[in-house]
């Protein structure tokens, strides 16, 4: 059995052949497309380490069957930094804020945290309210306990975005 999927992954249109309907988006990315940034922490949608954006929305890629995504746009942590990838000034503002605020320790949950934060920014529900940020980031576990830095990083990125929006309006 072989299924052909049209996927846009990090801005690149791809035809992906899969031979097994049981393959999750997470396992497709990690084991077949060499995109190992998204992590498998629980495989049950309980930890958030596998968070990616599908059509701009943050989802648990471990709970999503790849076959259900024909035509979808997928953004992973590898697609977040600007062209050329690693290079301080090209980092996405959320990535830079995570470094500045030490919003991680072991780094395993970090790709999921960052993708979740990027999704949160797009949702626009948090405002500058730390309590709402903490609540809306609570689908992403961090066992090292870097929550304070994570919250500060997300608030920082929200403030930067609001500042940029004000400048655009002016």
């Amino acid at each position: 059995m072989s299924l052909s999927l049209r996927l846009d992954i990090n801005g690149e249109p791809r035809i992906v052949e899969i031979d097994d309907p049981r393959i999750t988006l997470l396992d497709l990315l990690r084991e077949r497309l060499a995109l190992t940034g998204a992590k498998k922490g629980c495989d049950r949608g309980q930890c958030g380490a596998c968070t990616v954006l599908v059509d701009g929305r943050r989802i648990n890629s471990c709970l999503t069957l790849a076959v259900s995504l024909d035509g979808a746009e997928i953004t992973t942590i590898e697609g977040l930094a600007g062209d050329g990838g690693v290079g301080g000034e090209r980092l996405h503002p959320v990535q830079a804020a995570f470094i500045r605020h030490d919003g991680f320790q072991c780094g395993f949950c970090t790709p999921g945290q960052i993708m979740s934060a990027v999704g949160l920014l797009a949702e626009g529900h948090a405002g500058a309210d730390p309590e709402r940020v903490r609540e809306l980031m609570s689908g992403n576990l961090c066992r090292c306990g870097a929550y304070r830095g994570i919250t500060e990083a997300v608030l920082d990125a929200i403030a930067a975005e609001a500042g940029a929006a004000r400048e655009d309006a002016a």
Binding site: R30, E78, V86, G107, I114
Partner: peptide, 17 residues
């Protein structure tokens, strides 16, 4: 800041699996 910070926030830090 962490010397491995950039690797970790870009998904390029390689863990065992």
């Amino acid at each position: 800041t962490r010397r491995d910070g950039e690797l970790k926030v870009t998904g390029r830090a390689t863990y065992a699996a």
